[in-house]
C-alpha cells in the first residue's frame, strides 16, 4: 500500500490490468428454497474507469448482484470477478480492491465520523501515519470537515451517505459499488452525491451503481444495464438505449369518450406514427404515441385521428423518449 496518500485507484500494482473492472458471466443466485432465482443467468462486463448503472425495479436482482460482487452473498453458479479477482475464490483479495456504499446506512455508531474513516483504513492496512490526513482530506471533499467529531446518529441522511462514500474510498479501491446511492435523500443531498460520483469517475475510479431511478441512471452512467427478474434485458449507453426505441418523439394524450382500442387503431394508421402504447390507469385513459421526426409535425394528424374515433382530448404533452420508455418497451410495465 505504498500509493495511498490520495484516493487515486491503485491500478497496475500487481493487478491484472487487462481484466475488466467487473465481469459477471452466467451468474445465478437462488436464496434458500425459493423456486425463482433472484439473479438468473446475468452476464455483463464493466470497463475500467467507467460509470456503470444497473437499472431495474425493486426486486430485480440488482442488490443481490452487487452483494455477490462485494463478497457478501454467495453465488449459486456462474462467475463474478472484480479487477480480475474471482470474488468467490478469493474474497479476501477482492475486498482489498473494492469499496462498498450499501443501500442501508451501516456506520459504526461507537465511533465518530472521523473514527469511522480512520478505523476503516486500519482494517485495510493503510499505514497509521497516513490515516488521519487521508480521513481529513476525504471529510473535506465530502463537505464534512466540521462534522469530524460528530456521532453518525446525529448526521442527516445526506451527510451519512457522504460519510459512507468517504469511508468506501479510504483504502483507494479500484471499483466502488454504490447500491441505490440517493434513495431517501432530499434533492440537494442527491445532487451533492451525484457530483461526487462524477468526480470519482473523473479521477479514474470505476463506479458501479444500482438505481431504480431512470433520471439518475441517465445522468450518471456511461452505460446502463436494464435488469428485471434477475435477467439483463438491454445494455447500452443511455442515449443508445433510447435511440433503439421506435420513434424519435413522444406525444402523451389523455382522452375521454371512446374505446381505447378503437382510438389506438386509428392513430396507428397516421403516417409518421411508429407506435401507440396504452398507459391508462384507473383514473384516466392515457396513450403514448411515438412519432418519427418532430412531435409537432405528427400532432395535427394524430389529434385528427382521435376526433375521428369519437374521443375528446383533455391533455396533450410532447416529449422525448426516456429510459423509462425503454424499460416499458422491454417489460411492458413502469419502473415504479
Amino acid at each position: 500500500m505504498s500509493t495511498q496518500t490520495t484516493t487515486r485507484p491503485s491500478t497496475g500494482d500487481g493487478v491484472d490490468e487487462a481484466a475488466p473492472a467487473v465481469e459477471v458471466a452466467d451468474l445465478v443466485k437462488r436464496y434458500g428454497r425459493s423456486t425463482t432465482p433472484a439473479v438468473d443467468g446475468l452476464s455483463f462486463a464493466v470497463r475500467r474507469g467507467e460509470v456503470f448503472g444497473l437499472l431495474g425495479p425493486n426486486g430485480a436482482g440488482k442488490t443481490t448482484t452487487v452483494g455477490i460482487l462485494t463478497t457478501r452473498v454467495r453465488k449459486t453458479s456462474g462467475r463474478a470477478t472484480v479487477a480480475g479477482i474471482d470474488v468467490a475464490g478469493d474474497p479476501v483479495g477482492a475486498r482489498a480492491v473494492l469499496g462498498v456504499v450499501p443501500q442501508r446506512p451501516n456506520l459504526d455508531r461507537s465511533l465518530d465520523a472521523r473514527g469511522n474513516l480512520v478505523w476503516h483504513a486500519a482494517y485495510h492496512g493503510v499505514p497509521r501515519a497516513k490515516r488521519q490526513a487521508l480521513a481529513d482530506e476525504l471529510l473535506e471533499r465530502m463537505g464534512l470537515l466540521d462534522k469530524a467529531t460528530t456521532n453518525p446518529d446525529e448526521l442527516s441522511g445526506g451527510q451519512a451517505q457522504r460519510l459512507i462514500i468517504a469511508r468506501g474510498l479510504m483504502h483507494a479501491p479500484q471499483v466502488l459499488f454504490l447500491d441505490e446511492p440517493s434513495t431517501g435523500l432530499d434533492p440537494q443531498a442527491r445532487l451533492f452525491v451525484h457530483d461526487r460520483v462524477v468526480e470519482l469517475a473523473a479521477s479514474g475510479v470505476t463506479v458501479v451503481l444500482t438505481t431504480h431511478d431512470m433520471d439518475e441512471a441517465a445522468k450518471l452512467a456511461d452505460r446502463v444495464g436494464i435488469v428485471d427478474h434477475g435477467r439483463l434485458l438491454a445494455l447500452d449507453s443511455p442515449s443508445g438505449l433510447v435511440a433503439g426505441l421506435p420513434g424519435e418523439a413522444t406525444i402523451d394524450l389523455v382522452l375521454t369518450g371512446a374505446d381505447v382500442a378503437t382510438v389506438q387503431g386509428r392513430i396507428k394508421e397516421v403516417r409518421g406514427v411508429a407506435g401507440v402504447e396504452d398507459r391508462s390507469d384507473e383514473l384516466a385513459t392515457q396513450l403514448r404515441v411515438r412519432a418519427d421526426g418532430e412531435a409537432g409535425a405528427a400532432l395535427a394528424p394524430v389529434l385528427g385521428a382521435v376526433a375521428d374515433a369519437g374521443a375528446t382530448v383533455s391533455q396533450v404533452e410532447l416529449g422525448e423518449p426516456t429510459l423509462e420508455d425503454v424499460f416499458i418497451d422491454l417489460t411492458g410495465r413502469g419502473l415504479r
Binding site: M1, S2, G14, A19, A83, V92, G93, W119, G125
Partner: peptide, 27 residues
C-alpha cells in the same frame, strides 16, 4: 501493493485482524 499476483493485493490478514481487534479495544 507490490505483490506479484492478482490475488495478493492489500495488507496481510494479520494486519486486518489487528485493525478489527484494535477498534473493539479502542471502543
Amino acid at each position: 501493493m507490490s505483490a506479484p499476483t492478482a490475488t495478493r493485493v492489500g495488507p496481510g490478514q494479520g494486519r486486518a485482524f489487528l485493525g478489527v481487534l484494535g477498534r473493539d479495544i479502542a471502543v
